[in-house]
């Protein structure tokens, strides 16, 4: 037991699960965010069809993440959720509305516009709440011992509003580049047009957060302006990828924009983790403080090592089956 650091293994598993969730649910949430500004009902049909086969598989990563946190890092679970109480509710309500809208829009005719709005509203609220979670993590949590003692709206500050809007813009960018990849004609052309604007918004938020955080948090400032110069490869990589994305859109490339956007997200995600390392419940508790007993971590690890390859294979297979372009009439009669 002493030879293997189970906490580190779990850190990798949950870290992987979170980025999988962000990337995969990110683009289908993004499609929902862009729904009202899509130029026509036919575009909306194409966009929804492009995510319909995969969206609920994407969301199961979230449930697995929630349960996995309780098992492997109970402190994270029992501090984040009370601290983000209202935000978590808004996220869940948003995801539920969006899920229901998905199912019923396909079966609706006259009430379709209602489901369109439910899809947009649910997606946007859920994305904003997730962005606020990121902001709250950067801000840190007021704890006494292992208990959250802050207020009900500590998660809603000017800073977290910016991170919330930032993630809405980021998911919209993922959604737009996904749409470029999966559609053609009018829908694709529209997605090409909006992508640079969304990219601009994402870069703006990225810069605000990057300047703001070191100014208010000496720990983060020390991390970035101290001795670890190698870390600058992450923001550097993100900016390079942003440039690649911009050029790819100008050249009307179809797959590269989405790949580059995913790259930007990965760089930002890793940058966030190293900013706070080794604190998972900043400012006081590290990953190791937050861990459950090794026996419990091991007990679940066995099941997870068995299930993860199957889920990954199934996921890959689903994306393979539904590869290529979608048309607007698919799924309708």
């Amino acid at each position: 037991m002493e030879l293997i650091d189970l906490t580190l293994i779990w850190l990798v598993i949950i870290g992987f699960g979170v980025i999988m969730y962000i990337l995969m649910d990110g683009f289908d949430l993004g499609v929902g965010i862009l729904f009202p500004v899509a130029p026509s009902e036919e575009c909306r049909n194409s966009m929804m069809n492009s995510v319909a086969p995969v969206w609920d598989g994407n969301e199961t990563w979230l449930i697995l993440g929630g349960a996995g946190l309780l098992a492997a890092f109970p402190l994270v679970y029992s501090v984040f959720l009370p601290a983000l109480y209202i935000g978590v509710f808004l996220m869940l309500a948003g995801l539920i509305f969006r899920g229901i809208a998905f199912e019923f829009r396909f079966k609706a005719n006259r009430s379709r516009y209602l489901w369109n709005w439910a899809f947009f509203g649910g997606s946007t609220v859920a994305s904003f709440a997730q962005g606020a979670v990121v902001g709250t993590y950067i801000q840190g949590f007021e704890t006494e011992g292992f208990v959250y003692v802050g207020g009900p709206l500590d998660w809603l500050t000017p800073f977290t509003v910016i991170t919330g809007l930032g993630l809405v813009a980021g998911y919209a960018l993922l959604g737009a580049t996904w749409t470029i990849m999966k559609t053609e004609g009018q829908t694709q052309e529209w997605a090409y047009r909006i992508t640079p604007w969304l990219l601009g918004a994402v870069i703006a938020v990225f810069l605000i957060i990057s300047i703001w955080t070191p100014l208010v948090d000496p720990f983060v400032a020390e991390r970035w302006f101290g001795q670890f110069h190698v870390l600058w490869v992450l923001p550097g990589g993100a900016l390079l990828l942003a440039w690649i994305l911009y050029r790819a859109v100008q050249k009307r490339e179809e797959i590269l924009p989405f790949v580059a956007t995913m790259g930007i997200f990965i760089c930002a995600y890793l940058g966030l983790l190293v900013s706070k390392w080794p604190y998972i419940v900043p400012p006081d508790h590290t990953y190791w403080d937050a861990a459950s007993d090794p026996g419990s971590q091991l007990f679940l690890l066995i099941g997870v090592l068995f299930i993860t390859p199957i889920v990954l294979a199934y996921t890959a297979w689903t994306y393979w089956v539904f590869r290529g372009k979608v048309r607007s009439d698919a799924g309708y009669h």
Binding site: L70, A71, A72, P74, Y77, S78, V147, D293, S296, G303
Partner: peptide, 10 residues
């Protein structure tokens, strides 16, 4: 949750 996580979590 925090107190019972070793059992309830897995």
């Amino acid at each position: 949750s925090y107190a019972t996580a070793n059992f309830m979590g897995p």
